[in-house]
Each structure stands twice: as structure tokens, then as C-alpha cells.
Amino acid sequence: MCELFGLNSSRPIEAASCLRDFRARGGGAGDNPDGWGLSYKEGANFRLVKEPLPAVRSELFARMGETLRSDLILAHVRKAKYPLVNTFANTHPFKQVCCGKVWMFAHNGLIPEIVAVEQANKKAVCHPDGQTDSEYAFCYLLGHIARQSHVTLQLTGELWLETVARVAEAVASYGQFNFLISDGEYLVAYAHDRLYYLERHDQNLGMGALEVALIATEPLPSCAPWLPFEPGELRIYRHGRLVGDMKTYPPLPPKKAAAFQ
């Protein structure tokens, strides 16, 4: 099954040991050989690097993992399910522009029914570059965020975060829906049925306190201790601090989705 990794911190930091562990999940220690991607903040911009290749064999991932410094990272290693097509466009994370912001998204699970739902949407705010159910779900989420922005005439953090929680619960009814999404300011992690977090606060640094939050589908051995999300929990981070914790009540994944775990 695909796996997610996220980092949000109060200032740019290295995450070499965690990214080293995560890279191994892409076709080595984990059966996710169908592509990898890293999206990260660099100054005010979101960068995105990905390849439709096993992360464990990627020299580019290895180099980036050792040198990358950022305060916001979304990473993904893919196990192709929908569709069984291994291309650059189908590789996570996905990038879209909506409501005056650049958004990044990565998903773990299987929700093929959302494709037809979003294709039937006559007011879609974005169109997937690839064929994955994940990217269609991303556009479905952004459509609801854009609708909220249109109603309120501005996109405030509280409103779009509440929208994400409400829509995540609805999309989860189609299958299995664990994801990371960011607008460059917040990192939002939603655990339909499987996700872990690690939060660190270090006061003993010359540069001042450091706040760090890490998210992963599976605990990474070089970083500890990890705690599990509750099913249906949505955690919201900004500058490394937890600023919101919402509980939704999605159905358990149906047997057809659970079979891919």
C-alpha cells in the first residue's frame, strides 16, 4: 500500500534520518515500488520533485533526502492500484492552484468511485493531470474549498479546515482515505484508518525553541516515539504546533479496500 510522510516545523530543518527510513519504504523495507515524490517549501515557494521509479533505487531521492532543509515537507511512495499505470502524472504528491494558493496533496488508500463523481462535476475547479483516484479526490476537495471561499468572499484558515474535515468524512465513504494536504501554511493530516504522528518541542537551542511535527503511515525507526491517530481524526499543524484536532466519523473501509492493506 502507498505510504505518506509529512513534516511541519517552526523553522527549516533537515530530516535526513527520517527521509532515509522513508526512502527504504519505496521498494525495500516496504512494498511501494511504483514511484516516489517530495514536495517542500523553499522560501515562499512550493517545490515538487518526483519519479515513477522505486524510491529505494533513486539516487535523486538519496541526494535530496540527505541535503533537504525545509519547514514543510510532504512525501509519498506509491503502490499502484488505481490505475495500474506507473507514470510521472500518476505519481504523488499532486500540485494544484486554487483560491490564490498553491496546494499539495498525497493519498493512501483506494477510492475509485470518486473518479466518476468528480468527472460529473460541471463546476470543477481543477482537472487531474493523471488518472489516479487520488488526484480526482484532491480536485474534489479543492472544489469544496473554492465553494466555501466564494460564499465567504475570503479563504480563512478556520473555514477551509472545517471544510476539509467535512469533505474527508464524505469521501471516506467511498473506500479508504488517508491523506496529507497543505496550502503552504498549514499541514493537514487525515487518518481514515491508519496514520501516526510524532511531536517534538526542544527549548535547549541557541536559535530558540524548535517545534516539529512528523506524520507517517508507518512509524519510522530512526524517529520516535510515534503515536497513532484515532480513526477519523484530522490533525492540523502550523509552524510545528498542533492548532486543530477534529474528529470525523467515517465508515470503516469496505472489504474491497481493506484487502489492499
Rank of each mutant, 00 (worst) to 15 (best):
F179E: 01
Q131T: 11
P83K: 07
L234F: 10
G28Q: 12
P231S: 15
Y82L: 04
A191E: 04
H127W: 09
C2M: 04
G43V: 02
F46R: 09
A257I: 09
K247G: 06
A15C: 14
R166D: 06
W36S: 13
H144Q: 13
L68K: 04
S70K: 03
A168V: 09
A213L: 01
V117S: 12
I215Q: 10
G175C: 06
K123F: 14
T152Y: 07
R235G: 10
C223W: 00
L214A: 13
H92C: 03
N178L: 12
D202V: 10
L242C: 03
A257E: 14
V56W: 05
C99Y: 00
F61K: 02
Q119H: 09
E135G: 08
K41A: 13
E230M: 13
G28F: 08
T248C: 05
M207W: 05
D71H: 09
L242G: 03
E135H: 08
F88S: 13
T67I: 06
H192E: 11
V102C: 04
H144P: 08
K95D: 09
A257D: 12
H127D: 13
K256D: 14
H239Y: 10
E14A: 15
P228M: 05
D245K: 14
E169I: 04
W226I: 12
G28A: 15
E230F: 11
N8C: 13
F138W: 01
A189N: 10
W36L: 12
D193V: 09
D21I: 00
E211W: 15
Y82G: 03
P225N: 03
L227Q: 15
R166Q: 11
S70H: 04
E14G: 15
K41T: 06
C98T: 03
L38G: 06
R241H: 04
I114Y: 11
A24C: 10
T67P: 00
